[in-house]
Computed example of a mutant assay.
Amino acid sequence: MSSQGPPIIIRRKKVVHGHHGGSWKIALADFMTALMALFLVLWILSSATQEQREGVAEYFSTPLLTAIAGGEKQANTSNVIPGGGPDPTTTEGERQRIDRRIENRPTEMRRRFQDLRRRIESAIQADPVLRELRNQLRFDTTREGLRIQLVDTDKRPMFELGSDQVAPYMRRLLRTLAPLLNEVPNPISISGHTDSVPYLGGLKGYSNWELSSDRANASRRELVAGGLEPDRLLRVAGMGDQVPMPDSEPGDAINRRISLVVLYQQVADHIRNGAQGGDIGLPPAINRQGNELPTQEFLEGLRETLGAQ
């Protein structure tokens, strides 16, 4: 038996490489996510309409406490009765107060008016008879509300000459508008306008004042016959030839028109209460491009809307 020496033991040094850490990966991922979200928001804003952008702005302007509570409830009110209504177990009074405030927001009312205008234009476009009248409708937003003007042309008058007899296509148009006007809760004002061509008897007998009033009332009857709720009508007036259209001659056919105004609620309250002077908190005047009018331009538009009062 041969002798063996001690066993040979080979020791290898284990090299452990230090870890560099992965926090930079998390930071990079967060940065890329934020960058993607930014580009997504920019893309949405560039493709959204003005109404949609106003809606998003209004959503983010809602206080957090109000949003969590689902409205201005007990969380931010000092009233000991929940909701402020007559019954402590209900919030009817609170809902009515909140709805009225939202309803009176300028952005909400403008959005409602824009939707109404689109529905009217769609209804007219869908009717082959009314489609021929689309150039005789004028829409604009004044300090009173959404104004819809139905204007005459020499070839297609809305009424018989010198009479309040409604033309068949005018009757069809008014009865088409009636159910659409019912879709908004705002009161309605109707005013009749004539050109400056006088009657033979002058102002002593039947004149443009009576004619404009009669035509406004004839339009009112057609709207009610078409389904407009009678309680929605707040004012029916004849303006004679005192408020001609801008950039027109007093005798032009375009001055023979019916003006329907879907009133802001503040304006309707002002008319009902007979307030004299003072600031009633009217929304700013808006032109056809949706921009606020300067003061001088607003005064001219207000004179056009209200006339001699």
Rank of each mutant, 00 (worst) to 15 (best):
I9F: 10
V16P: 03
H19N: 09
H19C: 11
I26K: 15
A29K: 11
L42P: 02
S47L: 10
T49E: 13
E51G: 14
Q52M: 09
Q52P: 01
R53K: 08
V56C: 11
T62E: 14
L65S: 12
T66A: 09
T66N: 03
G71C: 07
K73A: 07
G83L: 10
P88D: 14
T90P: 01
R95A: 10
R95W: 05
R97K: 14
R100P: 00
E103P: 01
R105I: 09
T107H: 13
E108M: 14
M109N: 07
R110W: 10
F113D: 07
D115L: 12
R117D: 06
T142K: 08
Q149E: 14
V151H: 08
D154I: 03
K155D: 11
M158W: 05
L161Y: 12
G162E: 09
G162S: 14
Q165P: 01
A167Q: 07
R172W: 02
A178V: 00
V184M: 03
V184Q: 05
P185C: 01
P185A: 10
N186L: 02
P187K: 12
I188A: 04
S189A: 12
S189P: 00
S191N: 14
H193I: 01
S196V: 00
V197Q: 10
Y199T: 04
Y199P: 01
K204W: 12
G205L: 05
S212L: 06
D214C: 02
S219N: 03
S219L: 03
E222L: 02
L223I: 07
G227E: 03
L228V: 06
E229S: 10
D231H: 05
L233F: 01
V236M: 04
V236F: 06
V243G: 04
E249Y: 04
D252M: 09
D252L: 03
L260M: 11
V261D: 07
V261E: 14
L263K: 03
I271Y: 13
R272Y: 01
A275T: 15
I280D: 05
P284I: 07
I286C: 04
N291V: 06
E292Y: 05
T295Q: 09
E297M: 08
L299I: 13
G301P: 02
G301W: 02
T305S: 13
L306A: 11
A308L: 12
